[in-house]
Each structure stands twice: as structure tokens, then as C-alpha cells.
């Protein structure tokens, strides 16, 4: 239904995470203290989380534009006089002519199979609230994505440092 809070990526406790959880508070762990395989594990996990979050972000964006579309359609219908001719879609490619009898009453899907009759103005407000709600979640999600991306960059940096250090010490 696209109205859900962005889901957290599935938390699969890995051995590494278990080890990390013994350190008070996450994020306080020093990346430099980890060895390369552990870093690879961290990176893998961050990658997974990021792709999940980005997918959620896309879905939320879609939901937002769907709600916006509803607002646009409502305003379009409201502006017509009663008795206007419309084409009613039976399928995506088949239409029958119809006539608008009431332009101020619509039935809105409020979720879980329930529909509520509303006036156009109320419906517009309903969808505007939805858009706003989704927007708030999008902002929050964007923030999380940014933090994760920073973490990822940091991890990759440390990995590269370790690799170059390791190469230097073996070549000696």
C-alpha cells in the first residue's frame, strides 16, 4: 500500500556483529582495530543495508507521486460541472462514455480494504497529509542513507589503507 514506514534491513546477527555488540554502543568501534576479513564483512553488511534502504526510498517516492496524482485528479474532477461527459475506463484500453453526476463526493481507499466517502476537499486534504507523511519519512530515510554511505566510504578507506600497508610490509 506504500504507506509503510521505511523498513529496516533484516537484521541478521553475524559473528562480527556479536563481537561488536560487546563493545559498548555501536559506532564507537574503531575501524582501524579490525583486520581485513572483518572489514570485508562490515563492508558487505553496509552494502546490503544500503541497497535495502535505497530500494525503500524508491518505493516511498513512488507512493508519494501516486498520492500526488490523486490530488491532481481530484482537482481536475472538481473543476468540472455536473453533467460533464467523461470516459470511464473499463480496462486500460477500453472506455465507455459516462456522465459526471456528482463532482464533490469521492470514495477514498484508507487502507486494509476500507473505503470512506469524502468530499473532494476532504479527500485533497487526506492525500496532502499522506504526501506530507511520506515526505517526512523520505527525509528521515535520506539521512540514514547518508550516514550509511559515509560509514561505507570510511570502511573502504580503512580497507585500502590496510591493503597498501600489508603490501608494503610483505614487499620488504
Amino acid at each position: 500500500m506504500g504507506k509503510r514506514r521505511p523498513k529496516q534491513p533484516p537484521r541478521r546477527p553475524t559473528v562480527l556483529e556479536e563481537e561488536m555488540s560487546t563493545v559498548p554502543k555501536q559506532q564507537t568501534i574503531e575501524l582501524g582495530d579490525l583486520d581485513l576479513p572483518q572489514l570485508v564483512e562490515v563492508k558487505k553488511q553496509l552494502d546490503e543495508e544500503l541497497s535495502h534502504l535505497t530500494a525503500s526510498f524508491g518505493k516511498l517516492k513512488q507512493a508519494q507521486s501516486r498520492f500526488q496524482d490523486c490530488i491532481d485528479s481530484l482537482q481536475n474532477v472538481k473543476a468540472r460541472a455536473t453533467g460533464s461527459e467523461i470516459l470511464v475506463p473499463l480496462t486500460g484500453s477500453l472506455y465507455v462514455p459516462g456522465e459526471l453526476l456528482e463532482t464533490d463526493k469521492v470514495i477514498v481507499d484508507v487502507g486494509t480494504g476500507y473505503y470512506v466517502e469524502k468530499t473532494s476537499d476532504d479527500a485533497v486534504k487526506f492525500y496532502s497529509d499522506k504526501v506530507e507523511f511520506v515526505k517526512k519519512n523520505l527525509d528521515k530515510l535520506q539521512e540514514t542513507i547518508n550516514t550509511k554511505q559515509n560509514n561505507l566510504r570510511l570502511t573502504v578507506d580503512v580497507m585500502q589503507l590496510k591493503i597498501s600497508l600489508g603490501a608494503a610490509s610483505t614487499s620488504k
Partner: peptide, 12 residues
Amino acid sequence: SQLQENEIVQKE
């Protein structure tokens, strides 16, 4: 997510 959807409906 089901809980949330139902909560939204209830609020409505």
C-alpha cells in the same frame, strides 16, 4: 507493517 497500516486506518 500490518500494525502500522491498521493504525493509520484507525486514526482515519
